[in-house]
Nucleic acid binder design. Structure first.
Length: 958
RNA sequence: GCGGGGGUAGCCAAGCUUGGCCAACGGCGCAGGACUUAAGAUUCUGUCCUUAGUGGUUCAAGGGUUCGAAUCCCUUCCCCCGCACCA
């Protein structure tokens, strides 16, 4: 795209914004409030992100056309550690980060400032608003911009949490979270803001099985508590150091390392003394659940750093256990060294416990054989374990050996058996990280018990029920999600809503040591856009927005004079804000990417339901899918990774907007493809040129004028229907492709009437405004219209403008030409004369009779034949007549009611074709004659005229 | 495993809810014609096979329902996404 285009875009944006048509103020009109789920401020966005945002602007613009007072606010979400992480990387001069910033044309002198997380947020807020959203010509009310770091926003969030507390939806219970042993809570994520290594670690829950052994318990940590029925022995690492620990009445034995971890998770641990691994070998202990006595045996694979450093042995399902057991059984020297009874150990056999499709009941034995694993310590054991575990977890089922659990799936059995053992005091839980994590300070990161973690109780059944009820009445797109969201709401459970540590966010109002986490502070926020304007313009300060303020303006609770006195906000302003809130809310549409389906949208809905009265609950959700790069993510090498301003420059904003709107259904991922985008650039240019050409026309009226007007008017009507479900793609198709083809056809048919063109522009330009607003304005102005198309109303269709018969006649002409082309193609004739025959009058009378019969539902071949053959003027045609009746009846019986309706829309074919002869002879470069079949003295050597039927003339080419 | 989505002509992609002008919108690509000194742009025509406008075979595969199915039902094969504390 040319510079001219960018200048043109800037020109119109400047006009829109200086005329403030984007600003939303309460008035008498019906309102429409729409948002997109604000993006997290984590860095530059790419062209894929603009898809959903563009939908929102196009929908907002369309709603303006329909006469709504539209509010389309934007904001950003800075909560979490994204900005902190980026600032940290800039601070430490991370090369990739600097390159990334500069590659996106971040000014060099910014780098120093970006060491401060808040500056990072401010910087990107500016980038998003100015380089993305304004660059795309969004009619968003910029005065309402807000960000989760703003103090006023945070006052709103604190209020929201007070309301959740009031409703009894905040609950406290223990929780296990990663923490540095010296710093406290840390974030573990791939960007490794807080940590040196281990960004991919996950928290894993081990079940500690208690094996009674004399006066103590050997504690075996396992991820597979459901395998207890397969236990055959117990593993101890003879080299490792273990400790005895008193906890309550019990004495546990765990590895040194495990003891340390447990001190963060269990209260009242008392270390009694150390014990070497080899001292624990050859003991007999009682296995939990099965209450069998088993033997403790030596195994090197027990890592004291993993779990408790003690392992229960299930050789049927654990490749490690099976290989170690077999090796030990063959190793008489070792057995003797530990004073073990050789025969007893050799008698140990795996016990089948789980059956799964395609496997024997001893999968560990099977997999090791298959993979040829022989010795303990084989690195492939890890892979073998994963494979068996995964298969078993998903498809496994417990067999008879598991007693009352027989028949349960592994998944179910795992949960149940774990619970039962915990309740019986035979097991406990411990948490660990899947890999080592080291804090920035160099200390270890462990899983620490948090006793007083706060949760939002999304499992609350009243809340769930009310939310589902609300969802039923909402406009939710796509339809599948409307079905699905009920399941999601049902499945949503308590969610930890606060964090400690290094996060950006709002302080939890009931305990300032907590920061409200990222999902929880972005659910009710659309409401805040109504109020943010007052904070941004300075008429209400953050500290004035206390609980009573929001109670009053949102919930109508409290007294104006009192709240005014206590907050210092003038009473009149309070009224004003209150009325704003109740005018704009509820939110009409919340649009967001598909990643929001399982978390954000349900939480958004449930928080609204929890806090607000029924009449303020949201009305719509729209989910959009992604623009992806070839083979998945958008990337530099595969296209689409270029900065948004660069793409705007290269392709043109209107072209990009049209691309997003039209390339595919919103509910499907699309692969970014430069060529495809370029074709939309070409399309925008073609459209513009075509319309400018039309505007230059100044000729006489002709028969196609009414056709074109009808066509456009029909499209306006259809678009109204389509846009009731925000079907931008179909609208784009109608305007930029279908209507475009109409315009070309009009010109081809010789249409050139200025007045018609004027009317067409009235109808068409507003419809172009939502998707290609800059071009629409440009053409609006070029056509001599005043004002801006962005603030016009959708055109009203005049009485009689839609004339379906005219449209049908033109379709008939096209079909005729298709037939003629077909004949010319097949025969290869270069025509010197084309003769068209309309059917003989009696054929119309047969059609009429057929329509009558069809209207009564009595159309059948014999019925029609009988009815028409009784008439003399038909009967005299003999077999030709009966054949025609048969074919017609067969044809018509295949039609839908709509199809029959079209057939019934009759017009004078003879006259119409005669009016087209000039056009047709121009098209075909030969003389064109029109006759009625059975007209005397017409050249028709092959009796082609007999083929004519109503709606389909016969053609003779020579 | 649970939940969800999908397989349409060379490619992308509509249609499927409410079965019937559906051989299947549209775009891209390709081929040919027109315009042009030429190129580009534009425009017209064609693009499953066959054919004086007909007929045949198609919408992952195989069954079924129906006068009639890309559309509804069943079975099979293949692909994708989500499963949480991450926005």
């Amino acid at each position: 795209m040319s510079v001219r285009s960018s200048e043109m875009e800037a020109k119109w944006q400047e006009r829109w914004y200086s005329a403030r048509i984007n600003e939303a103020e309460r008035d008498e009109r019906p309102k429409f409030m729409v948002i997109f789920a604000y993006p997290g401020v984590t860095g530059y966005l790419h062209v894929g992100h603009m898809r959903g945002y563009t939908y929102v602007d196009a929908i907002a613009r369309y709603k303006r056309l329909e006469g709504y007072n539209v509010m389309f606010p934007v904001g950003t979400h800075a909560t979490g550690n994204g900005a902190i992480s980026l600032a940290a990387r800039v601070s430490r001069g991370d090369r990739d980060t600097i390159e990334y910033l500069c590659g996106n044309s971040c000014p060099l002198d910014m780098l120093e400032r970006l060491k401060d997380p808040i500056k990072v947020v401010e910087f990107f807020n500016d980038v998003y608003v100015n380089q993305y959203w304004k660059r795309f010509g969004f009619l968003s009310d910029w005065r309402r911009f807000t960000s989760t770091v703003n103090p006023d926003y945070q006052m709103f969030i604190r209020w929201q949490f007070r309301k959740l507390m009031e409703r009894g939806l905040l609950i406290q219970k223990p929780y296990f979270a990663p923490a540095c042993v010296s710093h406290g809570p840390v974030a573990i994520d791939a960007s490794e803001t807080d940590i040196q290594c281990g960004g991919c670690a996950e928290t894993v829950e081990y079940t500690m099985l208690k094996f009674r052994c004399e006066d103590m318990y050997l504690m075996a940590a396992t991820l597979r508590p459901e395998t207890v029925f397969g236990q055959t022995n117990f593993w101890v690492n003879p080299q490792a150091d273990y400790v005895k620990v008193r906890i309550g009445e019990e004495v546990w034995v765990v590895s040194d390392a495990a003891y340390e971890k447990l001190t963060y998770q269990k209260d009242g641990l008392e270390k009694l003394g150390s014990v070497k691994g080899d001292e624990l070998i050859g003991l007999r202990c009682i296995a939990p659940m099965v209450h069998r006595e088993i033997l403790t045996l030596p195994a090197d694979f027990c890592d004291p750093k993993v779990g408790t450093g003690l392992v229960t042995s299930v050789p049927s399902d654990s490749p490690d256990d099976w290989i170690s057991l077999r090796a030990l059984q063959r190793d008489e020297a070792t057995l003797r060294r530990y004073g073990l009874d050789v025969e007893e150990v050799r008698a140990i056999r795996p016990i089948p416990i789980i059956e799964m499709k395609g496997w024997s009941t001893l999968p560990a034995v099977e997999i090791t054989e298959r993979m040829g694993i022989e010795a303990p310590g084989d690195p492939r054991l890890e892979e073998a374990k994963k494979l068996v575990y995964k298969e078993g977890f998903h498809t496994g089922r417990m067999i008879e050996s598991s007693g009352e659990y027989a028949g349960l799936s592994v998944m179910e059995a795992k949960e149940r058996m774990k619970q039962v053992m915990i309740e019986a005091g035979e097991a406990d839980l411990m948490y660990d990280l899947s890999e080592e994590v080291i804090c920035r300070c160099g200390e270890k990161v462990v899983i620490k018990k948090v006793d007083d973690q706060w949760f939002i109780d999304y499992a609350n059944s009243d809340l769930t029920k009310a939310s589902r009820e609300q969802a039923k009445g909402m406009d939710i797109f796509p339809n599948d999600y409307l079905q699905n969201i009920h399941g999601v709401l049902e499945w949503f459970r308590e969610r930890a809503c606060v964090r400690q540590g290094n996060w950006i966010g709002t302080r939890f109002p009931f305990d300032e040591k907590w920061i409200i986490e990222a999902i929880s502070d972005s659910t009710l926020y659309p409401l805040y856009y109504v109020i943010s304007k007052y904070a941004n313009e300075g008429s209400v300060r953050a500290e004035q927005m206390d609980e009573r303020f929001f109670d009053l303006v949102v919930l109508d609770r409290g007294d104006y004079s009192q709240v005014s006195a206590s907050t210092g906000v003038p009473e009149e302003l309070l009224h004003h804000i209150r009325d704003d809130v109740h005018y704009w809310y509820p939110l009409d549409l919340n649009l967001g990417g598909k990643e929001h389906m399982t978390v954000h949208f349900p939480a958004f809905l449930m928080n609204h339901v929890a806090v607000l009265p029924r009449e303020m609950l949201p009305r719509g959700i729209f989910v959009n899918w992604y623009i992806v790069g070839k083979g998945g993510k958008i990337s530099k090498s595969k296209g689409g990774a270029q900065p948004i301003p660069g793409a705007a420059e290269q392709f043109g904003v209107d072209a990009l907007r049209l691309y997003y709107a039209h390339i595919a259904s919103p509910f499907a991922d699309v692969e970014w493809d430069n060529e495809a985008v370029e074709s939309y650039t070409a399309r925008v240019e073609k459209m513009e040129r075509t319309l400018l050409d039309l505007m230059a026309l100044d000729g006489p009226a002709s028969s196609v004028d009414d056709w074109l007007i009808s066509r456009m008017a029909s499209r306006v009507r259809r678009i109204r229907e389509l846009m009731a479900s925000y079907d931008l793609r179909s609208m784009a198709n109608e305007v930029y492709f279908e209507a475009f083809n109409d315009l070309r056809w009009y010109q081809r048919r010789g249409g050139c009437h200025a007045e018609t063109v004027t009317r067409v522009m009235d109808l068409l330009l507003p419809l172009m405004m939502p998707i290609t607003p800059h071009m629409a304005e440009e053409l609006w102005e070029a056509s001599g219209r005043s004002g801006m198309v962005s603030i016009t109303a959708l055109p009203q269709i005049g009485e009689g403008e839609i004339d379906l018969t005219k449209e049908r006649a033109e379709d008939y002409l096209r079909a005729l030409m298709d037939d003629a082309n077909e004949i010319l193609k097949v025969t290869g004739i270069r025509p010197t004369r084309i003769t068209l025959f309309t059917p003989a009058p009696w054929k119309y009378s047969v059609l009429e009779t057929a329509m009558e019969l069809a209207g009564r539902g009595e159309l059948k071949v014999p019925a029609l034949t009988k009815a028409v053959m009784s008439r003399e003027e038909v009967r005299c045609k003999g077999k030709e007549a009966s054949d025609f009746a048969r074919k017609l009846a067969e044809e018509m019986m295949k039609r839908s009611a709509e199809g029959l309706g079209r057939m019934g829309r009759q017009f004078d074919e003879l006259e119409f074709l005669r009016s087209c002869t000039d056009f047709l002879s121009r098209e075909y470069g030969c003389t064109v004659e029109v006759h009625q079949a059975e007209e005397p003295d017409v050249n028709d050597p092959h009796h082609k005229s007999r083929q004519a039927s109503p709606g389909r003339p016969a053609i003779l080419v020579e």
